[in-house]
Every structure is written in structure tokens, then in C-alpha cells.
Design a protein around this nucleic acid. Structure first.
Length: 854
RNA sequence: GGGCGAUUAGCUCAGUUGGCUAGAGCGCUGCCUUCACACGGCAGAGGUCACUGGUUCGAGUCCAGUAUCGCCCACCA
């Protein structure tokens, strides 16, 4: 046992064991295993260009705890790591990091080199050059992330890594898209779309969030065409007045019932619009009657569609008002010249500028009634954007998700019910989201760094692009980029020419690719032998805020392709909260970085903190828990050293041997109970309970049991009694090393290596069959109670625990005294008792007489 | 407005199917330099389980309602 250091410490264990696990392939997936022997994890790919924060450390640890347990039960664990590197966050980071912007009209510059310092002002570069920068920077970021994961002790098989922008991922993503398209599950449509004017891209319903913003009600008078007065409406968007196509009130609203079907003229522009009824109009909002514009919000879209209204589009994709020719078709006006004069002052302005201008115009025209009323109201934003979302009409790709199809929606809800949720109430969030969908899943983005749509369009001889009958590549040609690759039967010179072809310019949204993480990681259509071993996956771990995006979209893809759930279980982790119980956010600039935290407390201590967070429960960031974790790690080192010293050189060969002393059997019986609970808890993903029970017994083991048997183990009661203690100590230590291995992988493997061969992480999970089942656990309690009273007497006398107790009289029930008799020798030894006697009583009490102080 | 959680010691949290005087850790107080561990050990104090009713022999636990907090969704004229 020369390997045991004199002063064990958890510091420095990480580097040694990370290296050893890597070189020995401790966590390598055994791809010869059959599906029933495999445990597969659909690991969340972190956003490579974001930053890891303590929340990641928290939730990824939870998965690793379960994974390590499963591995020890004998499963071949498939635990890959992915990186989500495509999409807007990467683009934005590259723009800032290098000082560049992407201009797709520029040609590729093969001599372009990455700048040392960011360009100032930002330099426009071609899309291929831009993508190269994205690939380079995300690869660098991923290495830094991986270093954190290794340090944390995630038992990932690093031979199985994927990037969502890698050629294989693009191929998988395009292949699935083509299949969705062929089956009619994907389609393109020209329609009003929620649009971010900052990023100039469409966004999906799931990526929208509300933010409270100041606004103002403006009361505007419309002249009735019949000359019978005016109708006053209230709006927060007066700048959309040129786009007004109707007024609307509730069908039951008696104030407006007589007016339905009649017409009013828009102020300034003189457009005649009809007053229409619709039940979405609220009598108690504003003046009870609203103007419908194309388009101010999603309600406008509903009204426009359901009332069959015409369209007057004034908003450009950049958030400015586009030029309009009043008097032309669709832009009829009672006074086209006046309308034109008014509008010409607005064209080219951004929306907020246009708002100020039109309010002045309305004031001068006498159409504005009263002062604007300031309010604070929720406004829809793209979750990554900083300008309010608008609605523009554009051609976009969609995947059906039940938003327009009740049958599909029911099927997807049924899938959600088949999934085993941990905790189970998270399933409700999925269901209510699917239930509330109001449109299909918009997957196209007008961006640059992402998976291109593998689609071209024919251009007719007179130059018209035919979107209805796209040119598609075969699956064997994938991956392709239609902006550089050429469809069969054409050559590059025909690009964008009459009679030639044009590329679909869009890329897929990040979720359209990350919804395929099981397929990408599991080698779908790329590595059939792997795929059949891992799919459907055993578990999808993730946070609850992306149930509506990542989880739901993954279910959709597997539903369409395989008619199955992509996994059996979904484990939903909570958030990390500040000590003041607010959600910890990056913007708050939290000082604690994951790597700093790991270095300060040690990886095992940080994992201990994470393991104390119940599944699905938001947890406060609490450094004191990490200190406790460090103490546990330290205790395991010291206790292991001491126990191995007591048990002697042959400790490993004693594990599981015959145990004769009643209190030894009692400890092992308690241990059997903990093994049972820990195993059942882990099977139910409740790592926190497994830890709690294991830890509680471990402390009793060191505080009470080891103290009780110390003397006997040294030989005070003869060889046979000593051997029973040695066997018990060795057996219990073996159990604790394995039970704690998922939580404290570094100290567990370190202490295991002192006396065992191989890694504890490939050792067998403990079973109750390894332990004698006939011990009486209360024996340990009785002995512990007596010992505690003796200690208390010494503490109250302010004397050392080493002080001898001259007489100890234990009063207790006959039943408990009988138990005490079985462990008397150990109690006498541990308590340094000279004379122990007992008397029967109803209540437990102990009378101690101490030797006089020196 | 709809849905889902939560409310237990100063703090962070356990408390499985209702069962004796409600638990842990941290913090606090006191003691012990004890031959594994001072990055320690031993012991102690500390709670009318948010509130109001109800079911029950018995409620922290089940039911109804109230309050407060958090999250998700809807509302955006």
C-alpha cells in the first residue's frame, strides 16, 4: 500500500486521472454491444460561440451522474459530445471578433487572411470567406469548451464528437429535408412572416419573446364616407396608417353594429376602408374599434386572412417604409396627389422616424384627437434581437408541426405522452405548447452561416424564376451548397441567367439541424451499425426553456421519419439562480466562470454541488455546498487511507468474505439498504437522492462504525474478531468507492487505485447480493446512541474524548439492552469505558461518571 | 386571463405510499491540538411545516380556498 500518500489531497487529481482515462479508453463506447446492452445519450450540443456558464456545469453534471451509473451496471454507454456552431450567434461573434460583415454579392477572396485586430470600420467580405471565419472561430471555441468538460470529469467518449456545421451534419440535415419535402412534410409558402429587421431574417414562433416597452395610444379620426361624422380609433402604430385596409369591431358591439359594411376614409391618404366585424376585436380596448394594417401584428394577419382583405405593404425588409405610388392599383385614394405628398415625407424613413412624422401630419390635418396617451405594453422581439419584430410578406420554407393540422397535432401530443419525463410535470409544458401552436414551423433564415437548402429553381427563357417545381439533388450528391454547386444538366454559366437556374439563397435555422442531433450523433444513413445500436436513444437531457424548440422539433423529425419517439426519457434540468433567486444571466456578468470554479473548489466538489440539485428544480448558486463537497472528497481520501491501514495488506481479497460479529453484519445490512435505494433512485434519474443516502451512511460509517471497531481491528478482541472487522471495513470501503464514483469520479478512482485493479468507473455497480442480508441495522443505532451519550458527558465536562469513563450505566428497554449486549465490547473500547452496566427502564438514558481530571 | 411549480430552522434544502417528541448541511454557540482527517473531530441551541377551513383515530404529507414568489403560454388596436 505504498501508493497511499501521507497527506492525501484532492488537488491535482484531475489532470492525472483525465490523462489516464483518456489513455486507457475508460469511457470508450463498445460498438460490438447489442442494443439492449447499450445506454445512449442525446447530449445537448452547446452553442459554440456562446459562453459556458455555471448552469451548463450544473446540468451536464446531472447527465454524467446517470451515465456513470449506467456504465457501472454494465451498459455500453454511448455518450457523445456535439457542438452547435451554425446560426446567428456564431455570425454575430465572428462579426465582432474580426470586424467583418458578410456581403453575399462579393466573390470569394482566396488570399484573405484572418486579421490580428478587428477591422475598423468593419470590412465586407464574401460569404465563403465569412463562413471560413465562422468555422475557424467556432473550432477554437469548441476546444475551450471541451477543456472545461474534461476538467469537470464528464465521461464523454471523445471519439464521438460532432459539429452541426460539419459536412456530415449538413448532409444529414439536407437528406432529412429532402425526405420531408418528398413526403409533403416540408413546403415553401409566400406569406406574411414574422421578421427581424435588424438581422433581416424571418424567425419562428418558438423564438419570440415579449418585452415590456413604452408606447403611446394615438386617437385618430376617420371621416365616414357617407358624411355622417367620424370614427375614432386608437393605435400605438400610427405610422402604419398608409397600410390600413379596414376597421374592425366586435360583432356583438352595439356601438358599431349599424356601421358594419359602411366605409370610412383614412386620414392623410384618403383610402376608403370598410368597417368589418370580427370576434377577435375587443370592445374594451382603445375606442373599441381598431384599424387593420398589413401588417402591424399577428392579429392583423388573422384578420387579413379571415376577412379576405387586400394588402398594402409599406414596410421594407430593412425596417424602412418603401416608396408607394398612390393612385395606382391597390393604392386607390380620394385624393391621390395629397396622399402622395403626405407619403413622400415618410418613404425611406425607419418606422420610429415615420411615427414622429405622421403624428405631426395628423396633427396638422386635424385628425389627431387629444394628446397621445403613454403606456407600457408587451412588444414581440426575436429572443436574440434588439428591435421589435415586424411582419413582412416573403417566401419561406416550413415544416408541418400541427399548427395548421389537428390530426398531426394530436399525434405529436400523443408522442409527448409516451415520452417518460423527469420530472413528469414537464410533459405539461410540451403539451400546452403544442396545443397553442398557430402556424407551421418556419425553418428558413435569410442568413449566411448555416445549412443551405439543397434547392435550385429553373429560370424561364423570359427570366421568371419558377418556385413551384424546384430542382433537387440526389441524396448521394449531398452535401451541396446551391450557391456554388450546380444542378444536374446545367453548368455554372447558366446561373441566374434566363433559361438557366437560380439557387435558393436561404439557410436553415439552427433548430432545423439541431432537431437531428440523434441522427447526426448516431450515424443515421451514414453508419447503420451504429444507428441500430443507439436509436431510439435512452435519454435526452436538456433545460426546460427549450422544450418548445429543441425537444419538440426533435420529436417532429423522428415522428415523420421513423414514426417513433427519438428517445425513451427526457430529463429536464432546472436553472441556476443567483443567491437572490433571480435567474442567473450572462448579461449580469457573473464573475464565476466554470473553469475558475473548478479550479477553486476542485471538480469533485463542484460536481457534488450540482448533484445536490434535485432533477428539474431551479437551484441557487451556493458556494458553501461546494465546500461541503470538498470536505466529503477529503474525508473519502483520509477514511480510505485509514481503513486500508486497519484492514491490512490483503484488503482487496477480504471484500465479501464471511463476517461474524453482529455489529459488522449490522453495518453491512445498512449498506444493503443504501445500495437498494441508490440503485432504484438512479434508475429513476434521481441522482440527488442516491447521493443523499450514500453520503449519510458514509458519515455514520466514519463517525460511529470505524470508531467502534477501531480497537477490535487492531486486535484487542483476538484474531477472529479482528478479521470480521477487517472484512467489514474492506467490504464497506469497496461499496462506498463504487457508490460515490459517479459523484466524485476523481477521488473515487484515486482511492480505488490504492487497493484495486482497473478503474472504479468500469467496476460493477454494487448489489445487495454482495452483502449478507441478515444483519440487524438497529444494532448500529443502539451502539451509536450509547457512544453519543458518553461523548456528550465528556463534552459537557469540557474534557477530552480520550478521558476514561469510570462507570457508565445505560438505562433502556430490555429489547434495546439485549442489542447493546451484542456490541458491548466495541462500545466499551470506543468510549474508553472502565465499567459498563445496564438497567431496564422505559426511556433511554445514560449516566456517566468520568475519571477525575489530572 | 390560462397552465405548471414552489412556500418546512437565520441561509440552502430533504421529508417516498398520511403514523410516535419534524431532518440534513451551512451559519451560530461550546468543547477537543484524539496516534485517518484542524481543508478536522465531538456536542449544543434553533421550526405554531405561508394562511384558513375540511377529510381522518392521526395531516408537513390528502382535499378546497386564500396569499406570496417563480416559470411557461395568451393578451399587444
Amino acid at each position: 500500500m505504498s501508493r497511499i500518500p501521507d497527506k492525501p489531497t484532492p488537488d491535482g487529481l484531475e489532470e492525472r486521472w483525465i490523462e489516464r482515462w483518456e489513455s486507457e479508453g475508460t469511457y470508450r463506447f463498445d460498438r460490438t454491444a447489442t442494443r439492449d446492452q447499450v445506454y445512449s445519450v442525446d447530449t445537448p450540443p452547446p452553442t459554440a460561440s456562446g459562453s459556458l456558464h455555471v448552469g451548463h456545469v450544473f446540468s451536464y453534471t446531472h447527465t454524467d451522474l446517470v451515465v456513470r451509473y449506467q456504465r457501472m451496471t454494465g451498459k455500453a454507454v454511448f455518450y457523445p459530445m456535439g457542438w452547435d456552431d451554425n446560426g446567428l450567434p456564431s455570425e454575430r461573434r465572428v462579426q465582432n471578433y474580426y470586424g467583418v460583415t458578410c456581403d453575399p454579392s462579393l466573390p470569394y477572396d482566396p488570399d484573405f487572411e484572418r486579421p490580428e485586430e478587428p477591422f475598423d470600420p468593419p470590412k465586407p467580405i464574401s460569404r465563403p470567406n465569412f463562413v471560413e471565419l465562422c468555422l475557424h472561430l467556432t473550432a477554437e471555441d469548441e476546444e475551450a469548451f471541451a477543456a472545461v468538460w474534461r476538467r469537470l470529469g464528464l465521461s464523454v467518449d471523445w471519439n464521438h464528437q460532432y459539429r452541426t456545421i460539419a459536412p456530415e451534419a449538413i448532409r444529414t440535415s439536407q437528406r432529412m429535408f429532402l425526405r420531408n419535402l418528398a413526403r409533403g412534410e416540408a413546403y415553401a409558402s409566400e406569406a406574411p412572416t414574422i421578421w427581424d429587421v435588424g438581422f433581416q431574417t424571418a424567425v419562428a414562433q418558438a423564438e419570440i419573446e415579449d418585452r415590456e416597452k413604452p408606447g403611446a395610444y394615438h386617437r385618430i379620426a376617420f371621416d365616414r364616407v357617407d358624411g355622417e361624422g367620424v370614427i375614432e380609433i386608437e393605435t400605438t402604430r400610427p405610422e402604419l396608417l398608409p397600410a390600413c385596409v379596414a376597421l374592425v369591431a366586435h360583432p356583438d358591439d352595439e356601438r358599431f353594429q349599424p356601421l358594419f359594411g359602411s366605409k370610412v376614409r383614412t386620414p392623410l391618404f384618403g383610402a376608403e376602408v370598410e368597417i368589418r366585424p370580427h370576434e377577435l376585436a375587443s370592445p374594451d380596448k382603445g375606442s373599441g374599434i381598431a384599424m387593420i394594417c398589413t401588417f402591424g401584428d399577428t392579429t392583423d394577419v388573422v384578420w387579413w386572412r379571415e376577412l379576405g382583405l387586400s394588402i398594402r405593404a409599406i414596410l421594407g425588409r430593412d425596417g424602412r417604409l418603401v416608396p408607394v405610388e398612390w393612385g395606382s392599383a391597390g393604392w386607390e385614394s380620394a385624393d391621390p396627389d395629397a396622399a402622395q405628398r403626405a407619403y413622400d415625407e415618410l418613404a425611406g424613413l425607419y418606422l420610429n422616424q415615420a411615427k414622429r412624422t405622421i403624428v405631426e401630419q395628423l396633427g396638422e390635418a386635424g385628425a389627431l384627437r387629444g394628446e397621445p396617451r403613454e403606456i407600457v405594453h408587451p412588444v414581440k422581439f426575436f429572443e436574440k434581437g434588439d428591435r421589435p419584430l415586424e411582419i413582412v410578406t416573403s417566401r419561406q420554407w416550413y415544416i408541418r408541426n400541427g399548427g395548421h393540422d389537428a390530426d398531426l397535432r394530436d399525434e405529436l401530443i400523443a408522442r409527448g405522452r409516451d415520452l417518460v419525463w423527469h420530472p413528469d410535470y414537464m410533459g405539461k409544458r410540451y403539451e400546452s405548447w403544442v396545443d397553442g401552436l398557430n402556424g407551421d414551423w418556419l425553418i428558413s433564415r435569410q442568413r449566411f452561416f448555416g445549412v443551405p437548402f439543397p434547392v435550385w429553381y429553373r429560370i424561364s427563357a423570359d427570366g421568371v424564376v419558377d418556385h413551384d417545381d424546384p430542382l433537387l439533388p440526389g441524396e448521394d450528391q449531398l452535401p451541396i451548397d446551391p450557391t456554388t454547386d450546380v444542378p444536374d444538366g446545367y453548368d455554372e454559366s447558366q446561373r441566374n441567367q434566363p433559361g438557366g437556374f437560380a439557387a435558393d439563397p436561404d439557410v436553415m435555422d439552427t433548430w432545423a439541424t439541431s432537431s437531428l442531433t440523434p441522427q447526426i450523433a448516431g450515424g443515421w444513413e451514414e453508419d447503420p451499425e451504429l444507428w441500430e445500436r443507439v436509436f431510439p436513444f435512452d435519454v435526452r437531457p436538456q433545460a426546460h426553456d427549450i422544450i418548445r424548440t429543441w425537444l419538440f422539433s426533435t420529436v417532429i423529425r423522428a415522428h415523420f421519419e421513423d414514426g417513433a419517439l427519438p428517445w425513451r426519457n427526457a430529463t429536464i434540468s432546472g436553472f441556476i439562480l443567483d443567491p437572490d433567486r433571480k435567474k442567473m444571466s450572462k448579461s449580469k456578468g457573473n464573475v464565476m466562470t466554470p473553469m475558475g470554479m473548478l479550479e477553486q473548489y476542485g471538480s469533485d466538489a463542484v460536481r457534488y454541488w450540482a448533484a445536490n440539485g434535485r432533477p428539474g428544480v431551479d437551484t441557487a448558486f451556493d458556494e458553501t455546498v461546494m465546500k461541503v463537497g470538498r470536505r466529503l472528497a477529503m474525508k473519502l481520501l483520509n477514511a480510505s487511507k485509514f481503513v486500508l491501514n486497519l484492514a491490512g495488506d490483503g484488503a482487496a481479497s477480504l471484500v465479501g468474505d464471511e463476517v461474524t460479529e453482529p455489529i459488522d453484519r449490522a453495518l453491512l445490512a445498512e449498506l444493503a439498504g443504501v445500495v437498494d435505494v441508490a440503485t432504484r433512485s438512479f434508475d429513476d434519474f434521481d441522482y440527488a437522492r442516491a447521493l443523499e443516502r450514500t453520503e449519510a451512511l458514509f458519515w455514520r460509517f466514519t463517525d460511529d462504525y470505524v470508531e467502534l471497531v477501531k480497537g477490535r481491528a487492531y486486535g484487542a478482541a483476538g484474531d477472529d474478531a479482528a478479521r470480521s472487522a477487517h472484512v467489514t471495513l474492506a467490504t464497506a470501503l469497496s461499496m462506498f468507492h463504487r457508490l460515490l464514483a459517479p459523484f466524485l469520479p476523481f477521488v473515487a478512482d484515486e482511492t480505488w487505485s490504492w487497493w484495486q485493479d482497473g478503474s472504479v468507473h468500469n467496476a460493477a455497480w454494487p448489489t445487495v447480493q454482495e452483502l449478507p442480508g441478515d444483519g440487524d441495522p438497529t444494532l448500529l443505532t443502539v451502539a451509536g446512541d450509547a457512544l453519543r451519550e458518553v461523548r456528550r458527558a465528556k463534552t459537557e465536562a469540557k474534557t477530552s474524548l480520550r478521558t476514561e469513563a469510570e462507570t457508565v450505566v445505560v438505562a433502556d428497554t430490555a429489547e434495546r439492552l439485549a442489542l447493546l449486549a451484542q456490541v458491548e465490547a466495541d462500545v466499551i473500547d470506543a468510549g474508553k469505558i472502565l465499567s459498563l452496566s445496564t438497567q431496564t427502564a422505559d426511556e433511554f438514558s445514560v449516566d456517566v461518571t468520568l475519571a477525575p481530571k489530572d
